[in-house]
Design a protein around this nucleic acid. Sequence first.
DNA 1: ATGCTATGTAGCATTAATGCAACATATATG
DNA 2: CATATATGTTGCATTAATGCTACATAGCAT
Lengths: 77, 77
Amino acid sequence: MSRNPEEPVYNRIEEARAALGLSRQELADKVGVHYQTIGYLEREEYSPSLVLAIRIANSLNKEVSELFSLTPFKKGK
Amino acid sequence: MSRNPEEPVYNRIEEARAALGLSRQELADKVGVHYQTIGYLEREEYSPSLVLAIRIANSLNKEVSELFSLTPFKKGK
DNA sequence: ATGCTATGTAGCATTAATGCAACATATATG
DNA sequence: CATATATGTTGCATTAATGCTACATAGCAT
């Protein structure tokens, strides 16, 4: 693994964030990252570090495994 | 967050690995990383990417949250 | 003693993850 | 109309995470 090459991590950040009525900016502030970073993650343009993933999960009241997966998520929750 | 600066992620990789009787080399092979990488992680010299964390958890039959935490682990399991 | 395995340490190179800035678009609202 | 918010896109700079090599040490077996 040469630094996560071509290895997406599927996520449900956008759904979870919307469920809480948060904007990317607001989530970014809670998590402590740039708001663009949330955008990149939601578009799955790259995968987060573990710390970021844990912080996001905490901020969205979810388990890491509920938000992130190596395999695609099914449709309904 | 300027790329996880001074932000360790505590982990129990060594304990979980030992519990399965695996060497770092063997775990590294299962996970698909260099065996030094496992060493760095066990010594908490840096924190893994989310993909790596998930792969390690999978290889050790653990949940990500059982293996990694932003706060130190208590002693007894 | 020799060898093998497991681990630690140090250094160097590469690259993905982040920060950040600028601009565009769409939507809603005054 | 203006203007504010939310989002997407592009590009550039920085740095941590990873790969890899080499060497050292300790233990355990021959």
